[in-house]
């Protein structure tokens, strides 16, 4: 019984971990993590103005990235 509970817990933990990685991946792909890092680096609160500055900063490097065929 105890063994079964431990097994279930470890499966749940693995699912939670996988979900966390999936969310982290999506946040990285969609630049949400980059925005968080920008806020931490510039010590700003998220706001319309902060997002505008982030976009301007991010735009140039993003525009130079080739997109694959």
């Amino acid at each position: 019984m105890k063994k079964n509970t431990r097994k279930t817990n470890s499966i749940i933990a693995a699912i939670v971990r996988s979900f966390a990685v999936l969310v982290a991946t999506l946040r990285e792909i969609f630049d949400e993590s980059a925005y968080q890092r920008f806020l931490e680096r510039s010590r700003l609160q998220s706001s319309t103005r902060a997002y505008q500055i982030f976009r301007q900063e991010n735009e140039l490097s993003k525009s130079r990235r080739p997109r694959c065929c």
Partner: peptide, 8 residues
């Protein structure tokens, strides 16, 4: 930009 900044 206006409603939820950064929530892509």
């Amino acid at each position: 930009r206006r409603l939820r900044p950064g929530k892509v």
